[in-house]
Amino acid sequence: MSEQALKFTAIRLTQPIGELFVGKISSDKLASLAKADIRRITSRELEKMSGIQRGLSSARVTDIARYIETVDASFPNAFILNLNSEFLNDAPREIGNDCEDGTGIYCFDVSANEKAFSIIDGQHRLSGFQKAEVETFDLIVAFFIDLPIEDQAYLFSTINVTQQKVNKSLVYDLFDVSETRSPQRTAHLITKALNTDEDSPLYRRIKLLGIAPKFGDEVLYKAPLSQGAVASRIAELISADPMSDRDSIRRGKEIAVDAADVERGLIFRKFFAEEKDWAILRIMKNYFRAVADAFPDLWEKQDNPLSKTIGYGALMRLLVDAFGEGARRGDLSFDFFSELMTRVRRNSAMDQDAPLTFESFAAAGSGESKLYGKLKEWSELA
């Protein structure tokens, strides 16, 4: 083996596409051995395309790097690679074949060259390791040897096109089993309380897990809001960086609170830092009870924009403005919010451009922003 080489072992597997190997390589070594084949134009005249990978997203790389730097970061899924046999110093040598299914363990001796491996899937993760300030990470790699470019492209497209985005409601609901305090867990628990507390104005108006609740085939109740939509808006008012806050808590650090948090829209941050989640829940109940009392007929119509996601989003944006006014007064009671919503009702009734039914606001796209703009105008908080 040459001085500039990497020696490692891997298990051989056979699948319909052919033979592949699974092993481990440290993050620093893999970064020096692998390069993404970015798809690009290689002929100006014919606009001939080369490569299979999409261009790197710097924002995504930064997010991954920040995750890698957290105290409990993990990448249990494999980087999928193609090994160019030109950079094998010797043929893979079998060093073990003790399993009943005949699977053997092979030793690889690969020259340290960035062209040794091409990345089929995992370029953003690997770039994240290059950007992150962490010690070496052991990574799982699954690699083929001299896999034709056609098959590499097919694998890449299949992996990335057929992946289904995880339901945001499920993501938040999984924080129910977490023991670590975090903005996401607090947002989930408050959302759950808003939906299950009988004195809540949002009682049974939230689809937990994002689907209509059923007992067998029976739909228990219809709800206009999803758990993910409600919880994410609450989390946004707690933290601009929930992952970092969770990591700080895991490391035993205090949550940083700044005097400008309210101006930045983080109106619930101080309560979260002081572990006063009950205060966040109380404010949410006071606020939405005032909405329900000001517009009782529309609030009962779950197909009305005020009751749907567009209305919830616009109302949560108005809450940020209202909180600032209430905090200056030292009053975040139901009476304060009721006074606010009384103004909204009175002024909206006199607005010919946006009748009281709220039906003129689109349920998607710019509808939320337009509704928020009107609510702020009618509230006289502008």
Rank of each mutant, 00 (worst) to 15 (best):
R346D: 13
L83E: 03
L298V: 02
V171M: 07
M341E: 08
P16F: 01
T103Q: 04
A322P: 06
E377M: 09
E325A: 15
E263F: 07
A193H: 12
T136Q: 15
D151I: 11
Y172W: 06
G96W: 02
L281M: 05
A314Y: 05
E377N: 11
G326R: 02
Q227L: 04
E86M: 12
F137A: 03
L220R: 09
R44D: 14
Q352L: 14
I25F: 11
V141L: 04
L356W: 02
F75R: 04
D72W: 05
I211W: 03
G128P: 00
V134F: 04
M350T: 05
A73E: 07
L208M: 15
A73K: 11
Q163W: 01
D173N: 10
T42S: 15
I68T: 00
Q130H: 01
F75Q: 03
D245T: 08
E263P: 05
E86D: 15
G313Q: 07
V291L: 02
V177A: 12
F156V: 01
D351W: 00
M341G: 05
E359R: 15
L46V: 12
A240N: 14
A231T: 01
L315V: 03
D63K: 14
G373P: 01
N286L: 09
Q152Y: 06
N77D: 13
L220E: 09
S43R: 14
L194C: 07
R264K: 15
L174Y: 11
R40S: 14
K7V: 13
A34V: 05
D261Y: 10
V71G: 12
G228M: 06
V257S: 03
I80P: 02
A65Y: 00
I140N: 13
L266R: 07
F175M: 09
Q184H: 09
A223V: 01
L20D: 10
R125Q: 09
A34Y: 04
D109T: 07
N347M: 01
S248L: 13
E135F: 10
F358R: 10
S232G: 08
S379G: 05
L381W: 07
I41D: 11
D321M: 04
L332S: 11
T62P: 02
E133G: 13
A59N: 14
G210W: 04
R289A: 15
L46C: 07
L139P: 08
D173I: 03
G18P: 03
S232V: 10
E150G: 08
T342P: 05
A290Y: 00
I190E: 06
F268K: 06
A65I: 00
E69D: 08
E339W: 08
Q4P: 09
R181M: 03
A187Y: 02
L202R: 00
